[in-house]
Design a protein around this nucleic acid. Structure first.
Length: 267
DNA sequence: TTCCAGGCGTATC
DNA sequence: GATACGCATGGA
């Protein structure tokens, strides 16, 4: 990890990171582009302004301790994406997807925030998901904890305009508050078992559960299959994923998802 | 205006 | 176990 401290900022050198590709590819919903090369957003309830000039990043008003204890982990800086991408590129489609957006990384996000957010994501589009989460955070002065949502009924979420998902949100809050869903315990389970546990929450099926284990628990072998990934599978991998991605197919999934969803390739 | 979105619960077979 | 359908809302 190549960084230095300058004034109150952290200056980071990282060739395998693009802010727009990583923060705006549908894995996190609370980042916004505030200028050509700057983003502002939140991870948990930690705010950050960050800018990029080629492979040099500035994290504003971040101490070395905050950087090492939190942001370095959030941006997955200890993982060598150069090495990962080299391995993935043994496959032709992966090679194209990586060439299209080489700066994607998997963010290590908070499990609770990921769970709540991805319940909202189902049968929904990304810009609308962002709007719903903004209304949520505006009301609670940041992303609410499970405790903050204790005792909420579906109607309590009307202000979100989340539609049929409201009943799922109150069930999620209830199960986490009662301890029936214990995210810290689930984190330590094998991927498949963890997903089975998460699916006890109403509105959490295989896809949402996989997003939670991948984005919120850093289980890099989980593989969320949304409508876009189903298209990728049908078009490029009718006989299954190539061997070179299997161990980290969750990370590979991010490149594929972004590639098929935003590039102009024929589906 | 119509189509569809980082799906899931339920009914039915 | 597999398949079909409805669902709230609003972006494009």
């Amino acid at each position: 990890m190549d960084y230095s401290v300058k004034n109150n900022n952290i200056i980071l050198h990282e060739p395998d990171l693009s802010l727009s590709e990583t923060l705006d590819c549908g894995q996190a919903f609370r980042w916004e582009k505030i200028s050509e090369n700057e983003f502002f957003g939140y991870a948990g309830n930690k705010p950050l302004k960050i800018s990029q000039n080629n492979d040099i990043f500035t994290l504003y008003n971040v101490t070395e301790e905050q950087f090492l204890n939190f942001w370095a982990g959030y941006f997955d800086l200890e993982t060598d994406y150069g090495e990962l991408k080299k391995r993935f590129s043994e496959d032709k489609t992966m090679c194209e997807a990586i060439k299209y957006a080489p700066g994607i990384r998997l963010l290590r996000q908070d499990a609770w925030e990921t769970l709540f957010s991805f319940i909202i994501s189902q049968n929904n589009n990304i810009s609308r998901i962002k709007g719903i989460l903004k209304r949520l955070c505006d009301k609670y002065g940041g992303f609410p904890s499970a405790e903050n949502l204790k005792g909420t009924a579906p109607e309590d979420y009307d202000f979100l305009r989340a539609g049929f998902r409201s009943k799922y949100l109150s069930d999620c809050a209830e199960k986490v508050n009662s301890g029936e869903t214990d995210l810290d315990r689930i984190k330590n389970l094998p991927t498949e078992e963890a997903e089975r546990e998460l699916m006890k929450i109403k509105g959490v099926g295989p896809k949402v559960a996989a997003c939670v284990t991948l984005f919120g628990m850093y289980k890099t072998d989980s593989f969320p299959k949304d409508v876009w990934i189903k298209r990728v599978m049908a078009k490029f991998y009718p006989n299954g994923l190539p061997e070179c991605v299997l161990e980290n197919k969750g990370i590979a999934q991010q490149y594929l998802f972004h590639y098929i969803r935003t590039s102009k390739i024929e589906i």
